[in-house]
C-alpha cells in the first residue's frame, strides 16, 4: 500500500510540471501584458521594465529560467508589487487564507455532516424538510450576497449591541474579525455537506446489511454509527477532497468583501494585471494542494472500505 502512495506522489510531480507548463504559455497567450496600465507608460520606461523582467528574452528562455528558479523555490518577482517577490506575497497571504479556510472546513464538517445524518434518519418528515430547505438556501444564495447581508446585520444594524462584529479588515487575525468571513466561507459548504450526507446516509440505510444489523437486535444508534456511517461517508470524502483544496487557497469573493489579506485576492488581481509570476505562483500552490488532497482522499477510501486496496498492481 505504501508503495502505491509513493508512486502516486511520484506521479504528482510530472502532473504538476504539466500544469505549470500549460499555465505558463496560456498566460503569455492572453492579450495584453503586465505594463499595459490605464495610463500609458513612456516607451523608454517600458523598455527598461521589459528588460528588467526579461520579457524580451525568447519565450522558451523565459520558460526555462522560470523552471530553474522554481526548483530553487523562487517564484520570481511580482510584476505589479514591484518591491515584492511572489514567494514573499504567498508567504504573507497563504497563512491567512489557510487559517480561515481550515476553520471554515472544520465548522462545515462539524455542522453539515451531523445535520445531514439527522435529516436522513427522519427522511420525509418535518425535520428533514426543514434541514433540506436550509441546505437549499445555503446553496442558492451566492456568498457575495451572504457576505454583504452579514455585514449589514452584524456590522451595521447591531453596531451598538454586544453582537457587533467588524465589517471588514483583518486586525492581525483578531477573533472578532474572523467570525463573519469564516462563517460566510463555511455556509455553502455546510449546505453541500448536508445534502451529500443526507443522500448517502439514506442510501446506506437501505442496504441489506443494515437489515441484518437490525435483525441482530442492535440499538438504532449502533446500527447507524457502526454499520451505516462508514459507507455513507465515502461520497462526503469525495466531495471534501477538492473542496478542501479550494477552501484553503482562499476565496477571492470573501477575501475581497471582508478585506482580508489572503491569497485569494492576489489571484484575481494578478490575472487582471497580467502579473504573470503572481498568477503562476498561486496556481502552482492550488494545483499542489489539489494533488495532495486527492492522495489523502484515496487514503481515506481505504480506511472506509476494506475492499479498496492499493496493492502494487502494475
Amino acid at each position: 500500500m505504501w508503495s502505491y502512495f509513493a508512486r502516486r506522489v511520484a506521479i504528482g510531480i510530472p502532473t504538476l510540471w504539466a500544469i505549470i507548463t500549460v499555465c505558463f504559455f496560456m498566460m503569455r497567450l492572453t492579450p495584453g501584458g503586465p505594463f499595459d496600465g490605464e495610463a500609458p507608460v513612456p516607451p523608454e520606461i517600458l523598455a527598461n521594465l521589459r528588460a528588467r523582467f526579461h520579457l524580451d528574452d525568447p519565450l522558451w528562455r523565459q520558460y526555462l529560467d522560470y523552471l530553474a528558479n522554481l526548483l530553487r523555490g523562487d517564484f520570481g518577482p511580482s510584476f505589479k508589487y514591484r518591491d515584492f517577490n511572489v514567494t514573499t506575497l504567498i508567504a504573507q497571504g497563504f497563512p491567512v487564507s489557510l487559517q480561515n479556510g481550515f476553520s471554515a472546513l472544520v465548522i462545515a464538517i462539524m455542522i453539515g455532516v451531523p445535520l445531514g445524518i439527522f435529516a436522513a434518519l427522519g427522511q420525509n418528515t418535518r425535520r428533514d424538510y426543514t434541514v433540506s430547505a436550509f441546505a437549499m438556501t445555503g446553496i442558492v444564495i451566492p456568498n457575495f450576497i451572504m457576505g454583504h447581508v452579514l455585514i449589514l446585520i452584524f456590522g451595521v444594524w447591531l453596531k451598538d449591541s454586544v453582537f457587533h462584529l467588524p465589517a471588514g479588515g483583518w486586525a492581525d487575525g483578531a477573533l472578532a474579525n474572523r467570525v463573519l468571513p469564516v462563517f460566510c466561507l463555511s455556509l455553502p459548504y455546510i449546505a453541500y455537506l448536508v445534502r451529500i450526507t443526507r443522500g448517502s446516509m439514506i442510501e446506506a440505510m437501505r442496504a441489506n446489511y443494515i437489515r441484518t444489523a437490525r435483525a441482530k437486535g442492535l440499538p438504532f444508534r449502533l446500527v447507524v454509527l457502526r454499520h451505516a456511517l462508514k459507507s455513507a461517508l465515502i461520497p462526503v470524502v469525495t466531495f471534501l477532497g477538492p473542496a478542501t483544496a479550494f477552501l484553503l487557497t482562499g476565496s477571492m469573493v470573501v477575501e475581497t468583501i471582508f478585506q482580508i489579506p489572503g491569497i485569494g485576492r492576489y489571484f484575481v488581481q494578478g490575472a487582471l494585471n497580467r502579473d504573470y509570476t503572481l498568477v503562476m505562483g498561486v496556481t502552482i500552490l492550488s494545483a499542489a494542494l489539489v494533488i495532495a488532497m486527492n492522495l489523502i482522499v484515496d487514503l481515506l477510501y481505504s480506511l472506509l472500505d476494506p475492499r479498496v486496496r492499493y496493492e502494487g498492481k502494475q
Binding site: 441484518t212 437486535g217 442492535l218
Partner: peptide, 27 residues
C-alpha cells in the same frame, strides 16, 4: 423497537437470501 431489539438476534433470528450484501462490508 426496544422490545423487538431484546428479542431479535437473541430468541428470534433471521437469515437472508443474499449473503453477498447481507454482511457489513467494512467490518
Amino acid at each position: 423497537e426496544n422490545t423487538l431489539n431484546r428479542l431479535r438476534g437473541n430468541k428470534l433470528a433471521m437469515i437472508f437470501q443474499d449473503p453477498m450484501t447481507s454482511l457489513t462490508p467494512h467490518m
